[in-house]
């Protein structure tokens, strides 16, 4: 009896998914955006494309870390070609740096806007354009209505949207996931001189129909889970020892 109840619930959850906008994209089943086993945190065990992801940031450092992480994910999405649109209120982004995360910076169209209203309008218009790889926007505020509009737009066009929110006030949004990326100090154990690869503490605060979690990642041309790296190193040391 217990068993069948769990089955029914699992089946119902599966049925609900498409209704909530998680339509499986053809050929993208099991797409992990280079994030490895983090994909199991998402519904259908694949990184939600055609959805809005929001990133909470504190200071400029967090924004830089979030951009780095998004760039890493974006490089995986843009592998099949395509163009992205980057909407920002300040002109601090340094395009050449995107190259180190595997993106061709000339494949990104930057739109620098001042007013919030214009940012939201532009983002919605861009998200409606089918075939774009992704739309990234930096805006502090996002009302529930606006986020719902964006979510409806992407459910039609299957474009992925990223919103970087610095010091957000409104916490109730209709975004599919909510992330918080912060920098991590580089590995002390290896004791190598100089700063190493960028490292992040990736917190998945909220994910619709998934399981939130926290992971430590490193970017060295692709995402690497630090715990596994360390353990592998230790194993090698043990073998050598």
């Amino acid at each position: 009896m217990q068993n069948s109840k769990a089955d029914i619930i699992a089946q119902l959850q599966k049925d609900i998914l498409p209704l909530q906008g998680f339509k499986p994209v053809k050929g993208n089943v099991g797409f992990d955006a280079g994030l490895g086993f983090i994909k199991h945190a998402f519904p259908n065990a694949s990184f939600p494309l055609g959805a809005i992801h929001e990133f909470f940031c504190g200071g400029t450092e967090d924004v830089a870390a979030s951009i780095g992480f998004i760039a890493g994910v974006l490089s995986e999405i843009m592998k099949t070609g395509g163009v992205s649109i980057w909407i920002s209120s300040n002109q601090t982004i340094f395009p050449p740096a995107l190259k180190s995360f595997g993106i061709e910076p000339d494949k990104i169209i930057f739109i620098f806007l001042k007013s919030e209203k214009e940012i939201m309008w532009t983002m919605e218009e861009a998200l409606k354009c089918e075939g774009l790889a992704a739309v990234i926007a930096e805006t502090p505020e996002l009302s529930f209505t606006a986020s719902r509009r964006l979510q409806l737009a992407v459910e039609q066009s299957r474009v992925t949207g990223f919103i970087i929110r610095r010091n957000p006030k409104n916490l109730a949004t209709a975004c599919v996931t909510r992330w918080k990326i912060s920098s991590l100090p580089c590995d002390d154990e290896t004791d190598l001189p100089g700063v190493g690869f960028p490292r992040w503490n990736v917190e998945l605060l909220k994910v619709r129909n998934g399981t939130p979690g926290t992971w430590q990642l490193e970017w060295s041309g692709r995402f690497k889970h630090i715990s596994t790296v360390v353990s592998v190193l230790k194993q090698k040391q043990r073998k050598a020892g």
Binding site: T80, V83, T122, G131
Partner: peptide
């Protein structure tokens, strides 16, 4: 996926340029 020479994309850019001005749109 669309490329930079795609019609849909240039129409989108036209619309945005009409609303916010073409100076705001840049590619590097």
């Amino acid at each position: 996926r669309v490329g930079l020479d795609n019609g849909d994309l240039s129409e989108l850019i036209d619309r945005i340029a009409g609303k916010v001005g073409s100076d705001a749109i840049q590619r590097f």
